[in-house]
Amino acid sequence: MINIAIEKKMRTYQGHNILKVNTSIAPKSIIKVYGASGSGKTTLLKIIAGLTLPEKGKIIFNDTPWLNTDNNFNLAVQKRGVGMVFQNYALFPNMTVLQHLEYATKDQQWIDRLLHFGQLETMLLHKPEHLSGGQQQRLAILRALATKPQLLLMDEPFSALDPEMRVGIITELKNLLNELGITCLIVSHNPLEIDSIADDELCIL
């Protein structure tokens, strides 16, 4: 179970906004996160990952405290075992597809399987600048899965995929998440696209 109770002040185009989330997430579930632009969906993912600090809050993952602002405790991002797909992909311009995955894991069999899943086997030596938007997005998903995280945070992970590829990736992703027992939060502007795999939803106001 993941218990999240956080509060963070945010600056948006409309002025100041307070992101308030108080929820519990069942283990191994897939959660659809949605809400208006600027509501704080990306910020929430970054807070859970340990990349942004809220003013107030507690996060407990399977009885392990990750964050408690009351006693200034903040578990380092490296120790949280979180995988993250960034909205801008955050691919490393200096690395090829293969190097991205080898940077994340030494497990060659797992890398081969991920490459098959993302249909990037023929792109091993290509750097991000030579990949299409959809290929870049798939690489970002593969890299986040490469460490076999206990929690996967995905920020608009399917936006650049064509409809046919999207269905295939989403179906296969569901199987992988089930197999590895990964809990997953997916932010989407188009909630319908992940309705088929989501177990629950979280609306950010």
Binding site: K46, A49, L51, V77, Q78, V82, G83, M84, F86, N88, A90, L91, F92, Y103, A104, R143, A144, A146, T147
Partner: peptide
């Protein structure tokens, strides 16, 4: 450099 490059690396467990 985008901040997300470092952040992505940290989520992979890198110092």
């Amino acid at each position: 450099l985008p901040l997300s490059l470092s952040q992505a690396s940290y989520t992979l467990g890198k110092t």
